[in-house]
Computed example of a mutant assay.
Amino acid sequence: MRAANAKNIISKEALKKIFIQELQQKGVTETRDGIKIDDLDYYALRHEVFLVRSRETNIENGENKWF
């Protein structure tokens, strides 16, 4: 059981690095609240990436409309 938990921790740490790199490439260094992205946990980083990606999506395009 411990090995499975260790694998999850490693994968979340790897994803955190990927999220931080993606946000930095897009010019985001901190959240709207002023918290540096390096200080965020996995779930907060995932949320920030979602917010940035959703802002980039052109909803006026018919292919990107949800309904």
Rank of each mutant, 00 (worst) to 15 (best):
18 I>S: 11
13 E>G: 06
12 K>M: 12
56 E>Y: 04
53 R>P: 00
20 I>C: 02
57 T>E: 14
67 F>Q: 05
66 W>H: 06
38 D>C: 11
7 K>D: 02
7 K>G: 00
40 L>A: 03
42 Y>E: 05
62 G>Y: 01
62 G>K: 01
54 S>L: 11
17 K>D: 09
30 E>Q: 15
20 I>T: 04
26 K>W: 06
37 I>L: 07
61 N>H: 11
7 K>F: 12
8 N>Y: 10
7 K>P: 00
47 H>L: 08
3 A>P: 02
21 Q>G: 00
45 L>D: 01
63 E>N: 13
8 N>Q: 12
19 F>R: 00
19 F>M: 06
21 Q>L: 10
35 I>N: 13
37 I>K: 06
37 I>T: 01
59 I>T: 15
47 H>V: 04
60 E>N: 14
1 M>Q: 09
26 K>Q: 11
28 V>M: 02
23 L>H: 00
18 I>R: 15
39 D>A: 15
34 G>N: 06
41 D>Y: 05
12 K>F: 08
8 N>A: 10
54 S>H: 14
47 H>Q: 06
17 K>M: 10
36 K>Q: 10
31 T>R: 10
33 D>Q: 14
40 L>H: 08
24 Q>W: 02
25 Q>T: 11
56 E>V: 03
62 G>L: 07
32 R>L: 13
61 N>S: 12
48 E>C: 09
33 D>S: 13
31 T>I: 11
60 E>F: 10
57 T>P: 05
18 I>K: 15
57 T>D: 10
9 I>C: 02
18 I>V: 14
8 N>E: 09
65 K>I: 08
48 E>A: 03
